[in-house]
């Protein structure tokens, strides 16, 4: 049996926002934002609550129609792409997920194959193979027939990510993939994300915790009040000034002795 290659590097996966504006009704969240996401890397979007980071991710994933500007996928406006075509190039995991009671891990992951199926193309051996690979990638072997309700938080989140892996898209957008998890489970999920990037996928995630973002992302996008105030390698852009601008706190930054990524120490509320 032929195994589909997991290398997605040959497919370009350039996602850009050009002059992008997003609004809820008359309430503008983001205005004239420009962003180009580095391919094959992990990008983390960080910022205080309500800064528009999840809205930006929703806009990039076409869950939200822009009030101005465009989101471009390999130069094409995503609003003009057919839904199915978009779903074969860009996978998305929302922050809050919900599965019907009794749904098993393998059933969930199989949903990821839907964009590749159609009336003339039902479940195939290739689908089967991709699902098995996704399960392996997310380290879920042996849990295939377990109900999602019976899993630990970390396992459950890895199962959801495995569903997006099975979608076999060069681009993965994850909205706070670790928000409800304890530290051990967070690391499980972040390490899975790193492995995906190592295989050539472009990952964009909204992350609540600045320290984790610095540790696991290659590229950091810092947002404040709907605008990007800094972007780049976290080791270069994270400074006490930026932290103060973002969260209104003073801190000392020290490089992680293992990775060199910035760690926040001596955090206190900013003296105004």
């Amino acid at each position: 049996m032929s195994t589909p290659s997991d290398a997605l590097g040959d497919e370009a996966a350039g996602l850009e926002a050009s002059d992008l504006g997003l609004a809820y009704g008359k309430h503008t969240i983001i205005e004239a934002l420009n962003l180009s996401l580095p391919q094959g890397q992990v990008t983390a979007i960080v910022g205080p609550n309500g800064c528009g980071k999840s809205t930006l991710l929703a806009g990039l994933a076409r869950l939200h129609t822009p009030s101005q500007g465009h989101v471009l996928l390999d130069g094409q406006d995503i609003q003009r792409l057919p839904s199915r075509a978009l779903a074969t190039r860009l996978a998305l995991l929302p922050q809050e997920t919900h599965a019907p009671e009794g749904l098993t891990v393998s059933e969930l992951i199989r949903f990821g194959r839907q964009p590749h199926q159609g009336w003339l193309r039902q479940w195939s051996e290739e689908d089967q193979c991709v699902v098995a690979q996704a399960m392996e990638a997310a380290d879920l072997q042996g849990l295939a027939d377990r109900s999602l309700d019976a899993l630990s938080g970390g396992q459950r989140q890895r199962a959801w990510i495995a569903m997006t892996i099975a979608q076999h898209t060069p681009l993965l957008l994850l909205d706070e993939p670790t928000s409800a998890l304890d530290l051990g489970h967070q690391i499980e999920v972040f390490e899975l994300i790193r492995r995906l990037a190592a295989k050539g996928r472009t990952v964009v995630m909204v992350v609540h915790d600045l320290a984790s973002a610095c540790r696991y992302a290659d590229y950091l996008v810092a947002m404040h009040e709907g605008a990007i105030i800094a972007e780049g390698d976290p080791r270069d852009i994270v400074t006490p000034t930026l932290v103060r601008q973002l969260y209104g706190i003073d801190c000392t930054l020290i490089p992680d002795p293992e990775t060199g990524s910035p760690l926040l120490a001596g955090i206190r509320r900013a003296s105004s």
Binding site: A61, R62, L63, S83, R84, A85, L86, A87, T88, A91, L92, L93, P94, E96, T97, H98, A99, P100, L103, L108, F111, G112, Q114, P115, Q117, W119, T164, Q167
Partner: peptide, 21 residues
């Protein structure tokens, strides 16, 4: 015709949209 997309709706509207429905 709609059985497959309807099944994915059980995972939430956003997930169903993400799957191209």
């Amino acid at each position: 015709l709609i059985a497959r997309p309807l099944a994915s709706l059980a995972l939430g509207e956003r997930v169903a949209t993400g799957l191209g429905h």
